[in-house]
Amino acid sequence: MACPICGKPADEKYRPFCSRRCADIDLAHWLRGDYRIPGEPIAEKEKED
């Protein structure tokens, strides 16, 4: 299995990544929202008075 970030062989300790660095890069992508699925914005419920 190849690392999804850099393509090097995966290390069992950081699977599916090859190193802590690539695992951290992937985490940063998730935290920034790079892996989001585009769609329509969710409308907020209208407040009842």
Rank of each mutant, 00 (worst) to 15 (best):
A23N: 00
R20Y: 10
C6E: 10
A10I: 08
Y35Q: 12
I37R: 12
R21H: 14
M1C: 09
H29V: 00
Y14K: 00
I37Q: 08
A28L: 09
D34M: 01
K47S: 14
D34S: 04
R32M: 14
G39Q: 14
I37G: 01
C18N: 08
G39S: 13
P41I: 07
W30V: 05
E48C: 06
A23F: 02
C18Q: 08
K47A: 15
H29M: 01
R20Q: 15
Y14N: 01
I25M: 13
D11A: 10
G33F: 01
A43N: 12
R21G: 11
A2W: 08
A2N: 15
P38I: 05
E44Q: 12
G39I: 14
C22H: 00
G33D: 05
E46N: 10
I37V: 13
C22M: 05
R15M: 01
D49Q: 09
L31H: 14
P4C: 07
A2Q: 13
A2V: 12
E46S: 11
P38R: 05
G7A: 08
A2R: 14
R15Q: 00
A43V: 10
E12A: 15
D24Q: 14
D11V: 02
H29K: 05
R32G: 10
K8H: 10
Y35G: 08
A43I: 10
C18M: 09
A28Y: 05
I5H: 00
D11Q: 02
D26A: 09
E12M: 13
S19T: 08
P38C: 03
I42V: 15
D34H: 02
D24M: 11
R21F: 11
I25G: 02
